[in-house]
Design a protein around this nucleic acid. Structure first.
Lengths: 130, 130
DNA sequence: GTATTATTGCGACATTGTCGCAATAAAATA
DNA sequence: TATTTTATTGCGACAATGTCGCAATAATAC
């Protein structure tokens, strides 16, 4: 299925790009200046995930977050990495820490989802916006 | 607040004990012979988590799972470990694989939630019940 | 046996994520 | 440029998850 360029898609990507962090649908909707339907945002995000533009993180708050992940582009292959969810500024950032584990090969690992939760660097230092 | 012994609480713990895996509220409710209210199960589970009897895992399906985690008792301190969610038999098991990461100490890590998803050992071998 | 209060069932609620349908608009075609 | 094709969108609805307040129940202490 071919993809079309729309203002909506670009707006979503732009928000994620400038934030540099993983964002939930709600956070994206808040940051976007235009008014985009909730379901549409989810569809745009899901399509970007299919196309490998974004990756999805499910945090321990049970919500989905979506990130562009700059780090992925530096390496050839996007390695699984840890994420950090800050309870204070309510953002999720991709940590440049790869996830390592060794599992007997009768397990078929398809997805890796690792999230650390707490207070992030900026908020610890008091830089984080409330 | 003191805790009281009730049939409900014991039934929930018993189900988790015999299963040996992490279970969701729905899975627990299905396995339990008696009829227990949904909200009550959640409250029982949350109380057990507060008391350190259970630990909570949020999987990448966005749902909470609760486990007794035998491995935790062998060591003095319950180390953070990986979990494996099987898409086929829809169970989550605690893997005896500790989670390692080093993060600069201006991050305050409060929770660790690591879940691998795919097809588990038993289901790969065809042992897993459908 | 009685009093205290932790626990439970019930109903209600907010939130999240998805889906079907009709309307819209981007891209391809003539 | 005008027309066709069909990807995208908005809207409404839905199921599922997890929580909470309230009144009723029952475990423990007295």
């Amino acid at each position: 299925m071919k993809r079309r360029n729309t203002a909506t898609k670009e707006a979503v990507l732009s928000v994620l790009n400038t934030s540099g962090k993983a964002m939930s649908q709600v956070a994206i909707e808040k940051k976007i200046d235009v008014d985009i339907n909730r379901a549409t945002i989810y569809r745009v995000l899901n399509r970007y995930c299919e196309d490998g533009v974004l990756h999805r993180i499910v945090a321990d708050d049970g919500r989905q977050y979506f990130a562009l992940c700059m780090k992925c582009d530096e390496d050839q292959k996007p390695l699984h990495h840890f994420h950090f969810r800050c309870k204070k500024c309510e953002t999720i950032e991709c940590l440049p820490i790869p996830v390592h584990f060794s599992l007997s090969n009768d397990y078929q690992v398809e997805e890796v989802n690792c999230v650390l939760t707490g207070i992030c660097k900026d908020c610890t230092k008091g830089i984080g916006e409330e």
